[in-house]
């Protein structure tokens, strides 16, 4: 006969229902998914052109660039930061990429150089935030402004052609090609999603990201180098912006100096609609994926329904507000 130990006594006292927090989080993820499905159902009823393979592939392709940026943004926002510079990083890396293609460099070299450049740009923002102790909003606002200027200087304000050069055709494939009938940008976004998901949910670094966002002080006292984590998340965001820059430049066959303007807002919207808290420490990459799709479907639907672009912006604002309100109501009842 064994006597009941303290563990068992505790188990007997366990009368509270399963963790409200876990349930809430699972539900929040579902909620944005439900939102997406409702949105798609409504659009299907309004337009016969929506639910076709061709159109859905267009939606995915149009979403892929924002999704890639938003995946990087998720890392930053999970640490309670923000990255306003992604649109400018996209433009500058795109310009560099187009220049290198035009200068007859081979494709792998161009890609690696561009991605490293974007990572370095992000890391600089991260260093300004962590070592310079500048508010993320301000640090990346500065980067956004300065890098846009750098892009204009670099390009002389003119588009840079990427349609010439030895690697031009292969390069185009990254933005406009298809693999197994699926647009290459969509496949890229999918692969990036899987990698980011693995890093955030399965790796030690992912835990550190959540911990720093949950409470930087606790994280530091637990022996985590919070500064290094911050530099890393901005570097990841820069890397993602550079990848998006490559895809966009490849698709357009040229780099526009004004490319990516206000992309940071779409990315932040996708993250927030996906249920990630701007206060940090809470959220999922899956939510961001759904958030990006909601925004993508919405854009597509408004075009299909022939809504003027002025009204589109109002509609988009309304949907984001609705999503965030539903999400914050869920949290308030927690």
């Amino acid at each position: 006969m064994s006597t009941p130990g303290p563990g068992r006594a505790a188990a007997a006292m366990t009368v509270k229902p399963a963790s409200a927090g876990t349930l809430m989080r699972a539900f929040a993820a579902q909620k944005s998914l439900i939102g997406l499905l409702i949105l798609m159902a409504v659009v299907t009823m309004l337009s016969p052109h929506f639910l076709t393979t061709d159109n859905l592939l267009i939606v995915l392709r149009q979403t892929s660039i924002n999704a890639i940026i938003a995946f990087g943004m998720t890392f930053v926002i999970l640490t309670a930061g923000i990255d306003l510079s992604v649109g400018s990083v996209l433009a500058l890396t795109g310009a560099v990429c187009a220049t290198l293609i035009g200068a007859n460099f081979s494709l792998p070299i161009v890609l690696i150089a561009t991605l490293l450049f974007g990572t370095a740009l992000g890391a600089v923002s991260g260093l300004i935030v962590s070592i310079g102790r500048v508010q993320p909003f301000i640090a990346t606002l500065v980067a956004m402004t300065a890098l846009r200027g750098a892009t204009l200087v670099f390009s002389g304000g003119r588009p840079i052609d990427a349609g010439e050069g030895v690697a031009a055709d292969a390069f185009w494939y990254l933005g406009g090609g298809y693999l197994f009938g699926i647009p290459v940008p969509v496949i890229l976004a999918g692969v990036v999603f899987l990698i980011c998901w693995f890093v955030l949910s399965q790796m030690r670094f992912g835990r550190y990201v959540y911990a720093v966002g949950g409470s930087e002080q606790v994280a530091r006292l637990a022996g985590i180098n919070a500064g290094r984590v911050k530099v890393a998340v901005y570097a990841i965001s820069g890397l993602m912006a550079a990848l998006a820059g490559i895809v966009l430049t490849a698709r357009l066959q040229s780099a526009q100096p004004t490319a990516g303007t206000s992309y940071e807002l779409d990315a932040i919207a996708a993250v927030v609609v996906g249920g990630t808290s701007l206060m940090g420490g809470r959220g999922t990459l899956f939510g961001t994926l759904i958030g990006a799709l909601i925004i993508g479907v919405l854009n597509n639907a408004l075009n299909l329904l022939d809504v003027s672009s002025y009204y589109q912006m109002i509609a988009k604002g309304a949907v984001i507000l609705l999503a965030v309100l539903v999400d914050s109501r869920g949290k308030a009842t927690n």
Binding site: A10, T14, K16
Partner: peptide, 15 residues
């Protein structure tokens, strides 16, 4: 540790 320390919580995912 939850057992040894008799942590009173529904499960390890509790906030």
């Amino acid at each position: 540790y939850m057992r040894r320390f008799a942590v009173k919580a529904p499960n390890m995912e509790a906030e």
